[in-house]
Simulated assay, not measured.
Amino acid sequence: MNLLEIRNLSVTYRSGADEVRAVDGIDLDVDTGEVVGLAGESGCGKSTLALAVAQLLPRGAQVSADRMQLGATDLLTVDDHGLRRLRWSRLSMVFQGAMNGFNPVMPVGAQIAEAIRTHRPDIGKREIRTRVAELLGEVGIAAGRAADYPHQFSGGMKQRAMIAMALACDPELVIADEPTTALDVMTQAQILELIRRLADELDLAMLVISHDLMVLGELCDRAAVMYAGRIVERGQADEVLTHTAVTGPAHPYTRQLLACFPQPGAGAASISGIPGSPPDLAHPPDGCRFCARCEVALPECAAEVPALRPVAAGTTHVAACHRVASDTTLALKVAR
């Protein structure tokens, strides 16, 4: 069952005399109890999509969609009062830059308690203290640390505390925007294990946003890859984000993005970059937006916008590439 359902979502910002469509015609679903990853380079529209779902975009941003629903709630028409009731109680966020997301002059426990008190005013002080202790315990922080200030927490502990705050009112959907940014490798692994465990134990639906495909490959059930405001590939995480003999990423951008990360056993020459830069979304090119950077572009790529097509018959794995034939077979596998 789809908990979050998005159809044809677009977000436009005004930049001087130009309009920048940061998100352009996105379709995305997140099922109950499912972890979905959203990957792509910085500036591709991932965070804008997350803020559009939570209705937290800056003033002046224009949002349009055929449908954007959380359960039975229409997120496009809900009023301010409805949004206040929805946020944190049904939908919460772990914001990008969470390590700097706490008020430095308030104890961490008091900030988590404030979220509970705001959205559940009928709960007493003793119940709130108990709930804060439970939440900190769920993310591996001793209850006694609730009285500590943010500067007394390490980066990983701040991230855990931010996740605890996101869980404060038992939401149905948690959006985590770059939850492991600026953390060392060991702490990152711990945070990923924590997110996966909480999703399984609490039956949480989660949308995890990252530029790191290795993170999403380990954590997620399904994954989508964005480029220049559009989803270019979507499917099961093990199909989209790993190289195997039968399956693997079908879009050249996903393949080149994966090649930016070291492959175990591939030697020192296993890492490569993607030449060029993303297009100017104030004046996007015709056709495929990745065409100018693609190593295997066809003549039609410069003029015709590719649709998302199934990579193989009977699969939910789709890619927006002219090299994926419309008869649901892969016309030509991009060189690995």
Rank of each mutant, 00 (worst) to 15 (best):
residue 38 L to N: 10
residue 303 A to N: 08
residue 114 E to A: 14
residue 19 E to H: 14
residue 308 L to I: 06
residue 44 C to W: 12
residue 28 L to P: 09
residue 163 I to L: 09
residue 190 Q to E: 12
residue 166 A to Y: 10
residue 218 E to N: 12
residue 165 M to L: 13
residue 224 A to C: 14
residue 322 H to N: 01
residue 90 R to M: 01
residue 95 F to E: 04
residue 330 L to C: 08
residue 58 P to D: 00
residue 28 L to S: 06
residue 180 T to S: 11
residue 19 E to I: 03
residue 254 T to M: 06
residue 10 S to Q: 00
residue 142 A to M: 00
residue 280 D to E: 08
residue 112 I to F: 09
residue 261 F to Q: 06
residue 169 C to E: 02
residue 96 Q to T: 07
residue 171 P to E: 03
residue 59 R to T: 15
residue 205 A to G: 15
residue 5 E to Y: 04
residue 107 P to D: 08
residue 151 H to Q: 02
residue 172 E to R: 10
residue 60 G to N: 05
residue 4 L to T: 10
residue 323 R to M: 11
residue 35 V to H: 08
residue 17 A to M: 14
residue 249 P to C: 02
residue 231 I to Q: 08
residue 270 S to F: 06
residue 264 P to Y: 03
residue 143 A to P: 07
residue 116 I to P: 09
residue 197 R to T: 05
residue 74 D to W: 05
residue 117 R to S: 15
residue 303 A to W: 08
residue 22 A to C: 09
residue 69 Q to A: 11
residue 78 V to G: 06
residue 139 V to E: 01
residue 249 P to V: 00
residue 102 F to A: 05
residue 209 I to M: 15
residue 204 L to F: 05
residue 282 A to E: 06
residue 117 R to P: 03
residue 63 V to Q: 02
residue 293 R to Q: 00
residue 246 V to F: 10
residue 163 I to V: 15
residue 92 S to K: 01
residue 299 P to F: 00
residue 29 D to Y: 12
residue 28 L to Q: 05
residue 303 A to M: 06
residue 100 N to Q: 10
residue 128 I to H: 08
residue 127 E to K: 07
residue 170 D to G: 02
residue 244 T to S: 13
residue 257 L to C: 02
residue 208 V to D: 10
residue 131 R to G: 09
residue 314 G to M: 07
residue 46 K to V: 12
residue 31 D to I: 04
residue 309 R to P: 00
residue 165 M to I: 11
residue 30 V to T: 06
residue 190 Q to T: 05
residue 173 L to H: 06
residue 56 L to M: 09
residue 172 E to C: 00
residue 183 L to E: 11
residue 184 D to P: 09
residue 236 Q to K: 15
residue 243 H to L: 13
residue 18 D to G: 03
residue 135 L to R: 03
residue 163 I to Q: 05
residue 255 R to E: 06
